[in-house]
Amino acid sequence: MTAGVASLGSARWAVVQRRVLLYVVLGIFVVLFLGPVYVLLVTSLKTFQDVSLSEMWVFPRAVSLEAFRAALIRLGPNLRNSFVLVIPATLVTAAIGSINGYVFSKWRFRGSNIVFALILFGMFIPYQAILIPLVQFLRTIGLYGNLGGLILTHVIYGIPITTLMFRNFYAEIPDELLEAGYMDGLELFGVYRRIMLPLSAPGLVVVVIWQFTSVWNDFLFAVTITQRPGVQPITVALQNLAGSQVVEWNVQMAGALIAAVPTLIIYILLGKYFIRGMLAGSVKG
């Protein structure tokens, strides 16, 4: 009996040890993940004089918002451009994706699966493969070099992913509900409007967050389609800021933080939906 207690004690000790080890490992990863963020914050709160290469990890002597002010002056217009771009691009794509998703989940016409797969392929392609014709096309219709061209681009190349997300979401809604709608005399679009749409809220949130984040974070389309600094969204402006001759690291870090804030806020406030969207949408990359 005593032997049993002793072994139980040592077993428990082993469990405790293992728990401690577990937290230590998790803690190390927390440091690895937050370390860069610490540097970001600390550098952005320093004055230009205070940014010394050898004291990069040291807390600023005096907290200063100088860098943020400088970054906002330079990036302010681009921040606005990003919102002007992201809001319509997100809403329109979500609307189109929703009705497409409804059709592809509930109305399997002949060949609909092939068509759907062909649409889906559009989100996997490296966009470099359509970039040259895209630029030529936008130029022809007078949308090259402005936000309109960029919005159109994001709307169209956003269709596959939003369609997929809504399709998977609507697939969960039981067919019986739709049948009932038909019994009540609704037809195709009526069912969508009266039955599907009211049930769409969680799916819509996921899609909107996903699309908002990926359009906000896009760089390739933005840098190709907009070259004038006045119309560029924030990712391109940040990249230009970082590539400019005089390296003001504090302003760069402040700029990076400003560019990250909108999506980070969404992540923190709506993390659950964000992650759901990420799991559903990350196939796009």
Binding site: I96, G142, L143, G148, G149, L152, V155, I156, F189
Partner: peptide, 28 residues
């Protein structure tokens, strides 16, 4: 009834282009 859906189809097409078209006039 089918006409309504034809209109709907056009509405979707317009929706795709509309936000972009706002900027088309902004060309220098």
């Amino acid at each position: 009834m089918r006409k309504r859906h034809l209109i709907l189809c056009m509405v979707i097409a317009v929706l795709m282009i509309m936000p972009a078209a706002v900027f088309a006039g902004g060309r220098a």
